[in-house]
Design a protein around this nucleic acid. Structure first.
Lengths: 135, 135
DNA sequence: TGAAATCCCTACCAATTCAGTAGGGTAATA
DNA sequence: TATTACCCTACTGAATTGGTAGGGATTTCA
C-alpha cells in the first residue's frame, strides 16, 4: 500500500507546481486545500526540503516552494524520497540491494524472477512521469 | 514491501510445481528445503488451499499438492490471494475499489493518475506470468 | 482396531510501522 | 520588537507482521 506520507507529499508537490512564479506557500494553506493534517504535512515537507526537492523561507510571507521546474522533477526521485525503495524485495533493488538470507541461489529464485519484472515495469512508469505530467 | 507470507507462498507453489505427478508433499519437507518456519508456512498453505490453489490430503503419506497445472496458475490470482489488492491505493483498485474520503475530484488527482499507470504495468506483468514461467 | 502421521484451527505475542498529536524553539521579516 | 512561520523532538494509540504454542481432528497403515 502507498503510505499517506507519499500520498500527501505528492499532493503537496502538485499543489506547489501550480503556483505562479514559485512564490512561497504556507503549510497551513496546502494542508487546508488538500485536506491534510497540518502537523503531519509539516514533517513531510521537511523531508522533501532535506532531500532537495523543496526550498523554504522563514518568517512572515514565508513558506515552501518548488526548487526545480515541474518537468524536471522525476517520479523516481519523489518515490524514493517519500516511499523508499521501488523494488518490492531488497534482492532486486537498484539503490538498496541486499541478499536474501534464505534463498541459496538468487538466479533460480521464482520470487526474484517475478519481482525483477515488477520493478522494471514500475521504474518505467516513474521514469516516464514528471511532476508536470500529473497536472 | 512484499510480505514474507507472499514470498514464502510463492516459493512453496514453485516447489510443488516441480513435483512429479502431483504427489502430496508434506509441510515439513517444503519448510526445510526452502528455509521457512514450518508453522508459519502451515498457515500460508492453508490459505492457498482455502482459495482453491492447492489441495490437501490428511494422514500418513498426506500433504499438499497443486490442483492445476503450473501454466494455468496466473500470478494475478496468486498475488491477490497472498498479498491482497494489486493497486497501491484503493481508488485505483479493480477488485477492492474505494473512494478516497479526502480528494474531492478523482479525475484531477495526481496520485490517482500516477497510481493508475503503476497498477496497469504491474497487472501486465502478473497477467503475463504463470507458475510455469517462474521455474 | 489402534497408533502414528499429518493436516486443521485458535489463541497469543513481541517488534515494528503508521499516522498522527503535543509542545515548544528558532530564524526572518515587517 | 512583535509576529509569523518554519524547525525539531518526543510521545502515542492502533494496526500489521512474522511468527510461536498447543492442541485438536482425520486419515492411513500395520
Amino acid at each position: 500500500m502507498l503510505s499517506k506520507k507519499t500520498k500527501y507529499g505528492l499532493k503537496a508537490l502538485t499543489y506547489l507546481a501550480k503556483v505562479e512564479g514559485r512564490e512561497p506557500v504556507q503549510i497551513a494553506e496546502i494542508a487546508k486545500c488538500e485536506n491534510i493534517s497540518q502537523k503531519f504535512l509539516e514533517s513531510i515537507l521537511l523531508t522533501l526540503r532535506r532531500n532537495g526537492l523543496l526550498g523554504s523561507k522563514k518568517g512572515k510571507g514565508g513558506g515552501y516552494y518548488l526548487i526545480k521546474e515541474p518537468h524536471e522533477v522525476q517520479m523516481t526521485t519523489v518515490m524514493r524520497v517519500l516511499e523508499g525503495p521501488i523494488a518490492m524485495v531488497p534482492c532486486v533493488s537498484l539503490n538498496f540491494y541486499e541478499k536474501c538470507e534464505d534463498c541459496p541461489n538468487e538466479g533460480e529464485c521464482s520470487v526474484h524472477k517475478l519481482m525483477l519484472q515488477v520493478r522494471d515495469s514500475a521504474l518505467d512508469v516513474y521514469r516516464n512521469n514528471t511532476l508536470a505530467d500529473l497536472l
